[in-house]
Design a protein around this nucleic acid. Structure first.
Lengths: 242, 242
DNA sequence: ATACTTAGTGTGTAATTAACACTAACACAA
DNA sequence: TTGTGTTAGTGTTAATTACACACTAAGTAT
């Protein structure tokens, strides 16, 4: 229930602040990146942080996350998922702040539009070489987001959200390898992804050094959420942060 | 980040209430039960609800959940996991309430101690025959908790948390069947669970109508969290409520 | 032509899953 | 004391799937 009936009186209680933090991933030059913002004042002045902000009283958590996402990147209609809620009493030195963390995946397509330059206080960092010490407990949040990302990649179509509209099968395989941190067998990957029936062949080819490669499109029919492309059955659990 | 630096001023913001709701499962007579409490006043007077309450300013979310759990059941040191955070603006008609939902699993052992009788306003309900209309959005929360429970059962040792100290392999199989809602092959179940090496044979037998059955104990060494007993590889995703 | 490079396919074996028949150990009754 | 019912637990095999790796395809450059 929402209260102990006998003692309910909203004004009697001190209330925590509630924020939404959004861990935003994208693919740049074939490498996984995360968006961070530079803090300009106390606390953690000069540290990079995960973008976020207070929720408004009349918006849902999801709406708040989408609003943050659009404020930072300008993109809409991308994959967004609630990650976990962080609420240690001392995580923010100013006041009690409870933060509902989200993950967002921005397709490679959109990335040029809102990338900020080197001197900006909003930047894409490659996850492999991201700053080590983030503000607040944001290291914990980011690490957990990454572990969730990896684990979901193995049993959902999440990886497709990272790719542009059309892509080659080997590009897709590269993403899997990068995020899973492991080499995959070319032949088995081809077969498995074909059998899954989630790709739609286009008439496009891309020329390169060797044989030109066929380009494919992700089939967004058949109800997205239902269908699961499971790359492999084995997966580590992802239960709790840290 | 925790704020937009330029606009931060805690007192300017209206703050939502934050509660912790705990979906508490246990096994009674070999059947999965959930603990609900009866609301005695507006709103949703006369409806059953998931137990919960406000967080205190100086406790973490986990601590709040454990406190609620102990207040309702008296048990400590049981499995507890954050489920999801529910924050639709209108989910509570009184004021904006954001609820961090948890799942708790109480072993069959402890159940007699704090079971409340038929007339009480705190009751264990079999999940199969639970009340259909709960207070607030608690149907959504409970359904999501169940789906999470099912999905975790398939790739973790969670089911063991439901059982008493010692149990037979076929009792364990019953739990899997009940929660997965599906018949499992006896022989295959035996083999798989034995091979996993997570059970420790006891010298105990339990007599019944037919051949007496051997009792086993769950091996809690080898780091609990690490080890995963995967009943079967196939599993539905569990991503979001609804 | 032929060597080089990247794309994509085929194939055999090992490992797992899944179905089901079988044996074991007790109680009870004729 | 032998048979029958009942629940416990084991063995066996066919079918499916995963995995490693060898192969063919289609282009470019020399």
């Amino acid at each position: 229930m929402e209260e102990n009936a006998a003692t309910y009186n909203a004004s009697r209680y001190e209330r925590p602040s509630v924020t939404v933090d959004v861990v935003i991933f994208t693919l740049l030059n074939g490498e996984l990146h995360v968006l961070l913002v530079l803090r300009r004042r106390w606390p953690y002045e000069g540290y990079w942080a995960i973008p976020g902000g207070f929720i408004n009283m009349d918006e849902s958590l999801d709406q708040a996350a989408r609003r943050e996402l659009e404020e930072e990147t300008g993109v809409q209609d991308v994959y967004l998922e609630q990650l976990y809620t962080f609420g240690e009493p001392q995580r923010d030195p100013r006041t009690r702040v409870i933060s509902v963390a989200y993950i967002a995946i921005v397709p490679a397509d959109d990335h040029e539009l809102h990338v900020s330059d080197e001197s900006s206080d909003v930047r894409w960092f490659p996850v492999r070489t991201r700053p080590t010490q983030l503000a607040f407990d944001h290291d914990l949040i980011l690490n957990y987001a990454l572990s969730r990302l990896r684990s979901k990649l193995e049993y959902t179509t999440l990886a497709f959200q990272l790719l542009p509209e059309v892509f080659s099968i080997l590009e897709l395989k590269d993403i899997y390898e990068q995020i899973l941190g492991e080499k995959l067998d070319k032949g088995n990957f081809y077969r498995k992804i074909k059998e899954a029936g989630i790709l739609e062949e286009t008439s496009l080819l891309r020329e390169g050094r060797g044989r030109p490669t066929r380009l494919w499109r992700f089939r967004r029919d058949r109800g997205d959420k239902q269908f699961v492309f499971r790359w492999r059955e084995d997966r580590g659990s992802d239960d709790e942060p840290e």
